[in-house]
């Protein structure tokens, strides 16, 4: 073995030669077909009779440049709403997940409430929740600033996303093997300590990738708050669209969203893949 190494690389085995050839071939096919498809798109689309008009209305460089600063400014509001919603969603989601598993009979109403909560808020389209809560609760006669659409729109998002996040937390809690609970109990830990120090840390770690996907969805759904007034990026793009009779601002808004969500999605996928590797 050492001898062979000093004499230079080992001769490649028959199998290595075969696998290398396979790999080269599949690379060639993948590269070729990708180039073909994208090349066709780039060459053929501009040949379509309506292309010039489409370009002017959807991919208008001048409109893009004029509206991008305003869109970015409006996107700050999206990011802010997202940022203050996330901690509330995490806390409420976790509480609901825990409430769904309480065994204390005195707390049974809490358990029913948590179950109904997740059923309702997962079952109603987000935009409806935003409308109903955003206009409905302030309509009860709250004074300013407590009737602000920012507050109640956030509440709508937090309630909806907590329902989803709670279910994910719950699946995480259930995925921790019963033997971990038994080991912790056998040490004399109280149930709440078993949950807090043994089950939850493992459960939360396991669902991080799934929760990342919820965050990405939330970042997009923040735009739904525009229905009840806040001028975030989607509404701002709509204003530009109407004033300029041009859809390019929507393309700009989409690009801004993608600039945030694509890296986040890649990161979530990376976390998932890492977790899968660790578990196998």
């Amino acid at each position: 073995m050492t001898e062979a190494r000093t004499r230079g690389p080992l001769p490649r085995t028959r199998r290595q030669i075969y696998e290398d050839r396979l790999r080269r071939r599949s690379l060639l096919i993948a590269g070729g077909s990708t180039a073909l498809v994208f090349g066709a798109l780039f060459l053929l689309i501009p040949l379509a009779p309506g292309w010039e008009k489409v370009q002017r209305v959807f991919f208008n460089g001048e409109v893009f440049a004029r509206t991008l600063p305003g869109l970015l400014e409006a996107f700050v509001l999206d990011v802010a709403i997202f940022a203050w919603s996330v901690p509330m969603i995490a806390v409420l989601g976790l509480l609901v997940a825990l409430a769904r598993d309480v065994s204390n009979p005195a707390l049974y109403p809490l358990r029913i409430f948590a179950t109904v909560f997740t059923d309702v808020f997962r079952g109603v389209p987000v935009v409806l929740t935003v409308y109903l809560i955003g206009f409905g609760i302030p309509g009860l006669g709250l004074p300013r600033p407590w009737n602000s659409p920012y507050i109640w729109g956030t509440v709508a998002l937090v309630l909806t996303y907590s329902a989803y996040v709670a279910e994910i937390f719950r699946s995480g809690i259930e995925s921790v093997h019963a033997s971990q609970r038994a080991a912790a109990q056998s040490l004399g830990l109280r149930d709440k300590d078993v949950m807090r120090y043994v089950i939850l840390p493992q459960a939360i770690r396991r669902v991080v990738p799934a929760q990342m996907n919820m965050l990405i969805a939330l970042q997009k759904d923040v735009a739904l708050l525009s229905f009840i007034g806040p001028v975030e990026i989607f509404r701002q793009a709509g204003v530009y669209k109407s004033l300029m009779a041009n859809f390019t601002p929507y393309v700009g808004a989409a690009l801004i969203f993608l600039a945030v969500t694509v890296p986040a999605t890649r990161y979530a996928d990376y976390l998932l893949a890492k977790q899968r590797r660790q578990r196998s």
Binding site: F135, P138, G139, S148, F227, I228, G229
Partner: peptide, 12 residues
């Protein structure tokens, strides 16, 4: 209609 709702909710 949404402007109407916002007025009803005292938001504007």
């Amino acid at each position: 209609a949404d402007v109407n709702a916002a007025m009803g909710a005292g938001q504007i």
